[in-house]
C-alpha cells in the first residue's frame, strides 16, 4: 500500500513538471525576445534562439530539462548567467529553515491547544482559544507582520524587524533575526491545525468506545489523549501536511515584509525578470515539496491505523 502511494506521488510530480514546463512554454514572448527586449530584430532573435536551443521541438527540450532537473541541474539563470542550482540552494536553505522553525513551534502548539479545547469543550478556554485563533487567520498575514514589527520591534525593540540573514549567520543570530517572521507564520497556521485537531477529536468522542472508556471510570483527559486522539490522527496529519506545505510554498508575502532571502522572493524576482529557468526550477521545487509532504501524510496515516498496519 505504501509503495503504491509512493508511485502515485512520483506520477503526480511528473504531471506537475509537465504543467510547469508547458506553462512557461505558452507564455507570450519566448526567452530570446525577453533577453533581447528592445534590441530584437528578426535576425538577432533567430540567432539567439539557436544559441539557446529554442529552435528545437518542445518535447526534446522538456526531456533535457527534466533529466537535468533529476540530476540537480536546472540550467543557467538568464539574468546573471549563474547556475540556477547555485542560485537556489542558499535560498532554499533559508526557506526550509524558516519553515522548520515555525513548524516546530506551531504543530505541537496547535495540537496541544486543540486537545485542551476538546477536553474543555464549551468551556471558557475552548471559547477563548477559538476566538483568538479565528482572529489570527482572519487578519491578513502582512498586517499581522506589521503589527508585530510595530509592537515587538519598533516600540519595545525586543526583536529585529529585518530578517536579513546571510549564509554565514550563526544559528542563534539566525533564530533571533527570523523570530518575527516565524511568529507571524505560527499565528497564521496554528488556527487551522488547532481547529482540525479539536473537530477531529470531538467527532471521535461520539464513538461507542469513548462511552465505554467513560464507563470504565477514566478521567476526561485520559479519554481524550489516549482513546480519542490516536483515532483522530488521520485528518489532523493531513491538515498539518497542508500547512507545512504552505510554510514552504506560500510565504512570499511574509518574506517580502521582513526582507527575508527565501525561495518565494527569488521566484517573484525571476518572474518579473522573465528568468524562465529559475521560475521553472522554483516551480518544480514547490511542487515537489507539496507532493512529498502530502505523500508523507498519507503514509503516516496508514502507519497510525492499526487496521491497515496489522492484517486480520
Amino acid at each position: 500500500m505504501i509503495a503504491q502511494r509512493f508511485a502515485l506521488g512520483l506520477m503526480t510530480l511528473f504531471a506537475a513538471s509537465l504543467l510547469i514546463f508547458g506553462g512557461t512554454e505558452i507564455l507570450p514572448g519566448d526567452l530570446a525576445s525577453a533577453i533581447l527586449q528592445n534590441n530584437a530584430t528578426p535576425e538577432s532573435l533567430a540567432a539567439m534562439r539557436k544559441e539557446l536551443g529554442l529552435d528545437r521541438p518542445a518535447a526534446t527540450r522538456y526531456a533535457e530539462w527534466l533529466s537535468g532537473a533529476a540530476h540537480g541541474d536546472f540550467g543557467h539563470s538568464l539574468a546573471n548567467k549563474r547556475e540556477v542550482a547555485n542560485e537556489i540552494a542558499p535560498r532554499l536553505k533559508n526557506t526550509i529553515f524558516l519553515a522548520l522553525y515555525a513548524a516546530v513551534i506551531a504543530v505541537p502548539l496547535a495540537v496541544g491547544l486543540g486537545l485542551l479545547a476538546a477536553i474543555n469543550q464549551g468551556g471558557v478556554f475552548d471559547r477563548v482559544v477559538n476566538v483568538v485563533t479565528l482572529m489570527t487567520i482572519s487578519v491578513p498575514e502582512y498586517f499581522l507582520a506589521y503589527l508585530l514589527i510595530k509592537y515587538l520591534s519598533v516600540q519595545f525593540g525586543f526583536f529585529p524587524s529585518l530578517a536579513n540573514v546571510t549564509p554565514n549567520t550563526p544559528i542563534l543570530d539566525r533564530m533571533t533575526l527570523t523570530f518575527l517572521p516565524m511568529v507571524t507564520l505560527v499565528l497564521v497556521i496554528t488556527a487551522h491545525m488547532m481547529r482540525m485537531t479539536r473537530a477531529s477529536v470531538l467527532s471521535v468522542m461520539a464513538s461507542p468506545y469513548i462511552e465505554m472508556a467513560l464507563l470504565k471510570g477514566l478521567p476526561k483527559w485520559r479519554i481524550v489523549v489516549r482513546h480519542a486522539f490516536p483515532n483522530a490522527l488521520a485528518p489532523i496529519i493531513s491538515v498539518v501536511a497542508l500547512n507545512l506545505a504552505y510554510l514552504i510554498v506560500g510565504v512570499v508575502i511574509v518574506e517580502a515584509v521582513f526582507v527575508y532571502p527565501g525561495l518565494g522572493q527569488l521566484m517573484v524576482d525571476a518572474v518579473s525578470k522573465h528568468d524562465v529557468p529559475v521560475v521553472q526550477a522554483c516551480g518544480l521545487i514547490f511542487a515537489a515539496a507539496f507532493i512529498l509532504l502530502n505523500m508523507g501524510a498519507d503514509i503516516l496515516a496508514i502507519m497510525t491505523n492499526p487496521r491497515l498496519r496489522h492484517a486480520r
Binding site: 461507542p208 468506545y209 482513546h227 490516536p230 483515532n231 492499526p306
Partner: peptide, 11 residues
Amino acid sequence: AQSAAASFNPS
C-alpha cells in the same frame, strides 16, 4: 455493551 466491535478502541 451490545457491540464489542464498536466498544473496543480500534487503535
